Every structure is written in C-alpha cells, then in structure tokens.
Simulated scan of single mutants.
Amino acid sequence: MKGALTFGCCLLNLSAFAQPGIAEMQQAKSDLTNDFFSVFDFSLVMATLLGLNGAIKIYHNWQMGKDRIDADVAAWFFAAFFMIIAGAFLRALFGI
C-alpha cells in the first residue's frame, strides 16, 4: 500500500513539470483575442439581423391589429439588451 502511494506521489510530481510555459500562454491569449473579435463581430451581425426580423414581425402584427403586442415588444427589447450585456460580460471574462 505504501509503495502504491509513493508511486502515485512521484507521478503527481512528474506531471507538474509538464505544464505549459509563458510563451505558450501568450500564444493562447493571442489566438483567443483574434478568434474572439471575429466571433464577436459575427454575433453583432447576427443580433442585428435577428433584431430587424423581430422589429418587422412586431410592426406586421401591430398593423394587422393584434391587440396584445406588449409581450412581443418586451421580448424583442430584452433580447437586444441581453446581446449587449453578453458581449460586455465575455470581454470582462476573458480580459480582452
């Protein structure tokens, strides 16, 4: 039992030397920064297209005389608000 425990501790000690260095961490941050901004720009374009689609849907329902469009307007507004907050949250989370 003691031999297995000693062997396990030796393996843990060896795995500590296999951690990535500072150069690899800088490269990962650089890759994340480049990918994040392209994905972030794509999400803004998609949010714009979906927002326009929602606005046209609400306008159509309003013109057709639908009585209760308040829920649709609120859902449309909070979806847009969520997209803005999500972008700021992701920037703060990744430190970009």
Score class of each variant (00 low, 15 high):
residue 1 M to H: 15
residue 1 M to F: 14
residue 2 K to G: 13
residue 2 K to D: 14
residue 3 G to C: 14
residue 5 L to R: 15
residue 6 T to P: 00
residue 7 F to G: 08
residue 7 F to W: 13
residue 8 G to I: 15
residue 9 C to F: 13
residue 10 C to W: 09
residue 10 C to A: 15
residue 10 C to P: 00
residue 11 L to Y: 10
residue 11 L to P: 02
residue 12 L to F: 12
residue 13 N to V: 15
residue 14 L to K: 10
residue 14 L to M: 14
residue 15 S to D: 14
residue 16 A to C: 12
residue 18 A to Q: 09
residue 18 A to V: 09
residue 19 Q to G: 13
residue 20 P to M: 10
residue 21 G to E: 07
residue 22 I to R: 15
residue 22 I to F: 13
residue 22 I to L: 15
residue 22 I to G: 11
residue 23 A to E: 13
residue 24 E to Q: 13
residue 25 M to C: 12
residue 25 M to K: 07
residue 26 Q to D: 07
residue 26 Q to T: 12
residue 27 Q to K: 06
residue 27 Q to W: 05
residue 28 A to R: 02
residue 28 A to E: 04
residue 28 A to C: 02
residue 29 K to M: 05
residue 29 K to T: 00
residue 29 K to A: 03
residue 29 K to Y: 03
residue 30 S to N: 03
residue 31 D to S: 07
residue 31 D to C: 05
residue 32 L to K: 06
residue 32 L to D: 01
residue 33 T to C: 02
residue 34 N to L: 10
residue 35 D to V: 10
residue 36 F to C: 00
residue 37 F to T: 05
residue 37 F to W: 06
residue 38 S to V: 13
residue 39 V to I: 14
residue 40 F to E: 04
residue 40 F to R: 01
residue 41 D to H: 12
residue 42 F to P: 00
residue 42 F to A: 15
residue 42 F to D: 15
residue 43 S to W: 05
residue 43 S to M: 11
residue 44 L to S: 08
residue 46 M to E: 14
residue 47 A to H: 07
residue 49 L to S: 08
residue 49 L to M: 12
residue 49 L to D: 09
residue 49 L to G: 10
residue 50 L to W: 08
residue 51 G to M: 04
residue 51 G to T: 06
residue 53 N to Q: 10
residue 54 G to L: 02
residue 54 G to Y: 03
residue 54 G to I: 00
residue 54 G to W: 00
residue 55 A to M: 12
residue 57 K to S: 03
residue 57 K to A: 09
residue 59 Y to A: 09
residue 60 H to Y: 11
residue 61 N to A: 03
residue 61 N to I: 00
residue 61 N to R: 09
residue 62 W to V: 12
residue 63 Q to D: 11
residue 63 Q to A: 08
residue 63 Q to C: 09
residue 64 M to K: 13
residue 64 M to F: 11
residue 66 K to C: 05
residue 66 K to M: 08
residue 66 K to W: 09
residue 66 K to L: 11
residue 66 K to R: 13
residue 67 D to N: 08
residue 67 D to W: 07
residue 68 R to V: 11
residue 69 I to H: 00
residue 69 I to T: 07
residue 69 I to Q: 02
residue 71 A to T: 07
residue 72 D to T: 04
residue 73 V to K: 00
residue 74 A to G: 05
residue 75 A to M: 11
residue 75 A to W: 04
residue 75 A to V: 05
residue 76 W to D: 01
residue 76 W to I: 00
residue 77 F to C: 03
residue 77 F to D: 02
residue 77 F to G: 05
residue 78 F to T: 04
residue 78 F to N: 02
residue 78 F to Q: 02
residue 79 A to S: 06
residue 79 A to H: 08
residue 80 A to P: 01
residue 80 A to F: 04
residue 81 F to S: 06
residue 81 F to C: 03
residue 82 F to K: 02
residue 82 F to N: 07
residue 84 I to R: 04
residue 85 I to S: 03
residue 87 G to V: 03
residue 88 A to F: 06
residue 88 A to K: 10
residue 88 A to M: 06
residue 88 A to L: 10
residue 89 F to Q: 10
residue 89 F to D: 02
residue 90 L to I: 14
residue 90 L to H: 02
residue 90 L to V: 14
residue 90 L to T: 03
residue 91 R to A: 07
residue 91 R to C: 07
residue 92 A to D: 12
residue 92 A to M: 15
residue 92 A to P: 01
residue 94 F to K: 06
residue 95 G to P: 03
residue 95 G to L: 07
residue 95 G to F: 05
residue 96 I to K: 05
residue 96 I to Y: 07
residue 96 I to D: 01
